[in-house]
Amino acid sequence: MDVAQLKPVVEAIIFASDGPVTPKMLKNFIDESNGVDFEKVIEALNDDYQSSGRAIQIVRVAGGYQMTTRPEFATWIRKMYMGRTSNRLSRAALETLAIIAFKQPISKAEVAAIRGVNSDGVIKNLLERRLITISGRGEGIGRPLLYSTTPEFLQYFGINDISDLPKPREIEELFGEGKYVDQIIEALSSGDASEEPQEDNHQESETQNDA
């Protein structure tokens, strides 16, 4: 089958599914889809929706495809779901998730060390919301439980993969490596920090983030 023939079949499967449908699943369901690039099929479907002004779209999330409404219709749907909308995560929860996402697998104690504050309650909450899971035990004293993010985490933030998250700025960018070491040592020893080089560095890292 070519893209045009596959389009309605793929559309039907994604429509009828209650979660993201991975390309592998599509391949299993559609015998005649050997060697097909499903990404092209999804693109063609999204083009159709766009050009005919439909309210739906297919997004790439947690390694699969899922049908959602377009963001501009949220106002009305929110009214329909009044009282049943999911709560936003607290800042503590977001910080903890950011640390776990980039340092996984990681223990409670390591999370607390970075945040400078006890994080047991937050972690328990995130476990209950299934945004993180226990993924093993560490080597350290007491073999502490280690935590990692889940596919639900990817779904919650609407991303396909952990690598889609904004990268934390490298600490070395600001501190501890390369030419900046000299500037920092100079600043610390003279007691008079040199402003400009740091400014440069700051901007540089911000543009990297935007990219």
Binding site: R88, L89, R91, L94, A98, I114, F157, L165, P166, E170
Partner: peptide, 11 residues
Amino acid sequence: QRFKEVAIKMA
């Protein structure tokens, strides 16, 4: 600070 920044973007 690094993770605080990421958390803001994640929001």
